[in-house]
Design a binder for these strands. Sequence first.
DNA 1: TACTTGACAAAAG
DNA 2: CCTTTTGCCAAGT
Length: 110
Amino acid sequence: MPDYNFFDNVYDVVRQIPKGRVTSYGAIAAYLGSKQSSRIVGYAMMASGTANPPVPAQRVVNKQGLLTGKFHFGGDTMEQMLQNESVEVIDNQVQNFKEIFWDPAIELAL
DNA sequence: TACTTGACAAAAG
DNA sequence: CCTTTTGCCAAGT
């Protein structure tokens, strides 16, 4: 068993995302190590579908606030879940993204 | 063991 | 503004 599971780190951060808030792959990657690892975060999210406990991957979007991976949830499930948490999503785009953005580098720095 | 793919991001053309 | 390229790391083939 590996030591530092990048995936586990990602899961831990994502689970701490408050309701009605969203973050970006790059933010998580940057918080863990380097923003270059953003792809690994996305990969972790994909694996999160089989992870236990499952992580609120719907709260993780790309830096544009765009629901790039909504298809992995199955149709518009991602949008529905986000809107169910008071997150406005229009055309795969999180509205007011900048306002509800949750940055682990700041929130978890406390 | 090597090559390809991927829920990203930033830069270049 | 849109398309292409490069970098990064892990997993699948």
